[in-house]
Design a protein around this nucleic acid. Structure first.
Length: 272
DNA sequence: AGGACCGTCAAAAGCAGTAT
DNA sequence: ATACTGCTTTTGACGGTCCT
């Protein structure tokens, strides 16, 4: 890994700040892209893919990609994945705003949950070919990210406004992090059942699973930012009942204890 | 499309404990 | 003190189904 880089809207920062990039929910801008993650690797190594609550559009350049360049959509996953990154591989990942999946990809988040889908299966061959041709001419990863953003913005403009359900999901997402689902439903003037249906459709996971992913990211981010903080303190600050429950979540999502995951992240690069 | 009802069961809460 | 495990009880999230 030659210094992974993160693009947070117009701001470029270095990899350690990854978890300071907004984890959904975020306020949508003109673009449907919440953040970009740009990674480059100069030798073979195992990498870790931390699950995120956003739909991601990934452009790969290099030996792992079909024909040296491919694009795929990655739905919301709930477990850490491990993968070998090949020398010379580059990846540009656009993380979409919550509820933007339908406008950008033509399918709702629920259709992508836990899946990786080639872009041609969503956009068709012609539109994908046009994007790949433009990306092939990109000077570097940052240029490719800018290109990708402009193409996404064009598609959102063509798709028109946000689906009402997507807007409801966005409104609810922030609230379910702090309150019970039925309380949020009352607040937003819909039934609890409807709110859960809409969240699953437009976010890709259940309200609880979404809140769990965000909480996990907060805890991991805090642990990476403050190396000497106690796990009990991190658990409390991140919304866990206590340290025991934080550890249980790390085991469920990452398959290892918090300490072990931090250790892994020191030797394996993040893949988005 | 969205509300109401309901049974099931997973997650959260709470606590006690061990290893270092 | 910290990091972690394991257990029981309680709560509420979930999804199926039916109805408007």
């Amino acid at each position: 890994m030659r210094g992974g880089r993160v693009r947070t809207n117009d701001l470029l920062v270095q990899a350690p700040a990854l978890y300071h990039a907004p984890i959904s929910p975020t306020v949508p801008t003109a673009s449907a892209v919440a953040t970009f993650f740009v990674a480059e690797c100069d030798h073979d190594m195992p990498g870790l893919s931390i699950p995120r609550p956003e739909i991601q559009l990934v452009v790969r350049f290099g030996p792992s990609a079909r024909g040296g360049l491919d694009v795929h959509a990655m739905g919301v996953r709930q477990k850490v994945h491990r993968k070998l990154i090949r020398s010379g591989q580059r990846a540009v990942t656009a993380r979409l705003h919550l509820g933007a999946s339908e406008a950008v990809l033509g399918v709702r988040a629920s259709a992508l949950a836990g899946r990786i889908v080639a872009l041609e299966d969503l956009w068709g061959d012609a539109a994908t070919r046009r994007l790949l041709d433009r990306l092939a001419g990109a000077r570097d990863s940052i240029d490719a990210a800018a290109l990708l953003e402009s193409v996404i913005t064009e598609r959102v403009a063509i798709a028109g406004g946000r689906h009402p359900g997507a807007q409801l999901a966005l409104d609810a997402a922030d609230r379910v992090l702090r309150r019970k689902v039925n309380a949020v439903a009352v607040e937003l003037g819909v039934s609890e059942r409807h709110l859960r249906r809409v969240l699953r459709e437009h976010v890709g996971v259940s309200p609880k699973a979404f809140a769990r992913l965000v909480r996990f990211h907060r805890a991991l981010g805090a642990a990476r930012a403050e190396r000497h903080a106690s796990w009990a303190g991190i658990a409390a600050a991140s919304g866990y009942y206590d340290q025991a429950h934080l550890i249980a979540d790390f085991r469920a999502i990452a398959g290892m204890t918090p300490q072990a995951l931090l250790g892994q992240l020191r030797v394996s690069p993040l893949l988005g």
